[in-house]
Simulated assay, not measured.
Amino acid sequence: MRTAKEKKMVTPQQLRDIEQLQNVCETHDHVQLKLNWEMLRDRGSDSLDFFHYENDELVAFLGLYAFGSTVEVCGMVHPSVRRKGHFHRLFRLGMEQVKRNGYKKILLNAPAGSAAAKGFLSKIGAAYAFSEHQMEWKETPLEEPDGILLRRATVEDYEMRVRLAVTAFGVDEEDARMMESKVMGDNTEIFMIVVNEGTVGKIRVSREEGQAWIYGFAILPEYRGKGIGGKVLRRVIQEQRSAGHSVHLEVEARNDHALRLYESVGFKAVHAQDYYIIAINQVFQ
C-alpha cells in the first residue's frame, strides 16, 4: 500500500516513525538533519507535516516550520526508495500549503554534506542563501559570572521581547509580534537578562533528551560590547551542565562576532546546515 497524505496533527506513532527515518538517513548519509523537534512535538492543528508510507513504514517526510512570515522546509527520504519522485510529490504538497498560508519567504534547509539534498535543490532551482553552524559546548574552565540576573519572562516582557527580536535579528515588527506571542512547550524557558535592575536582553533554552539548546539570544544594541553576552552564556552553561544536559546552539556562519563570542566560552562547531531560497512562483511555473 502506498499513500502520500497530509496530516492535521502529528501523532505519537508518527513522531516515532519520523525519528526512525531520521536515524536511518543520518546513518546512511553521515549527516545530521535539522528537523526542529521542539516544534514537531508541539504542533497545533496546522497542516504542516507530510508523509509517504509504504507497507506501513514511513519512507518520506517533509515538515514546514513557520517563523512569522518565513517558513523553513526540511525533509528526508529512505535511502532504499530515493529517485522515485516521493519527495518531489511531498514538496509540491508542502508548497501548496505554503501558498495557502501566504508565507512571504521560503528557506530550504539541507545538511552541508548531503549530496542527495544538493541534487534536489539544484533540480528545483533553489539558490544558496547562507550557512549555519551547529555548535556544542566542550568542557572548558569558566569564570563565575557576576553582575547579571536571569529571570523567567512574564507577559509584562512581551513588548521588550518584540523590541529585542526587531533590533537583534532584523525581523519586521509584525513577524516579531507573531513569534513572541507563541506559547512555548513545557521543556522551554525564556529568560530576561537583567543588569543593574534594567532588562537588557533575552535568551531561550529548550531541553530535549538530555540536550539543552540556546535560541533567540539577544541584547539591546547599547549594551553590547560590555561583556554581558559572555556572562549570560557562562551562567546558562553552568546551570544546564549542573542539570546533566549537554549544551548546544546554532549560529549563522557569517556572523563573525557571534562566532567569536561562542568560541570564547567553549563552543565548538560540530555540524553545518546550508539554507537555500526559492520563490513560490518558481515551484509552480
Rank of each mutant, 00 (worst) to 15 (best):
Asn23His: 06
His28Gln: 14
Leu15Cys: 01
Tyr103Asn: 03
Ile280Pro: 08
Ile278Thr: 12
Asp29Leu: 02
Gln32Cys: 13
Met39Ala: 11
Leu35Ile: 08
Lys182Arg: 11
Arg43Asp: 14
Arg161Ser: 07
Ser264Tyr: 01
Leu15Met: 12
Tyr65Pro: 05
Phe120His: 09
Met95Tyr: 09
Gly185Pro: 13
His245Arg: 05
Ala243Asp: 06
Val77Gly: 07
Ala110Ile: 09
Gly227Ala: 11
Gly266Met: 06
Ala127Gln: 13
Val73Asp: 08
Val71Arg: 12
Arg41His: 12
Lys105Tyr: 15
Ala269Met: 12
Arg152Asp: 06
Gly147Gln: 04
Lys202Ile: 02
Arg41Trp: 07
Trp37Cys: 08
Phe51Met: 05
Val270Ser: 01
Ala212Phe: 09
Gly198Asp: 13
Met135Gly: 03
Ala116Val: 12
Ala116Ser: 14
Gly94Tyr: 01
Ser122Asp: 11
Gln97Met: 04
Ala212Cys: 01
Glu57Trp: 10
Arg254Ala: 15
Gln134Arg: 08
Glu136His: 09
Glu209His: 11
Ala165Glu: 06
Leu249Gln: 00
Gly230Gln: 10
Phe217Leu: 04
His86Ala: 04
Phe61Ser: 08
Gly44Val: 02
Ser131Pro: 06
Asp175Cys: 13
Met179Ala: 05
Glu197Thr: 15
Ala243Leu: 10
Ala127Asn: 12
Arg177Asn: 11
Lys5Gly: 10
Glu132Asp: 06
Ala269Gly: 06
Val98Ile: 15
Ser246Gln: 13
Phe217Thr: 00
Phe120Lys: 05
Glu6Lys: 14
Lys118Trp: 02
Leu33Val: 06
Val162Cys: 08
Ile203Asp: 03
Arg177Gln: 13
Ile190Lys: 10
Ala176Pro: 02
Lys8Trp: 11
Gln240Arg: 03
Ala243His: 04
Asn281Ala: 12
His86Val: 05
Leu121Asn: 04
Ala168Tyr: 10
Val77Pro: 00
Met192Trp: 07
Leu93Glu: 14
Tyr65Gly: 02
Lys202Asn: 02
Val71Ile: 14
Gln32Arg: 08
Pro221Thr: 06
Tyr128Ile: 09
Ala218Tyr: 00
Arg204Asn: 15
Asp146Arg: 13
Asp175Ile: 09
Ile228Ser: 00
Trp213Cys: 08
Gln134Leu: 10
Lys226Trp: 06
Gly216Asp: 15
Asn101Arg: 11
Arg41Gly: 14
Gly198Arg: 14
Leu58Asn: 03
Trp213Pro: 06
Ala127Gly: 12
Val232Asp: 03
Val171Leu: 07
Thr167Pro: 04
Gly170Phe: 02
Tyr103Lys: 05
Trp137Pro: 03
Gly229Cys: 01
Gly185Ala: 15
Arg163Gln: 13
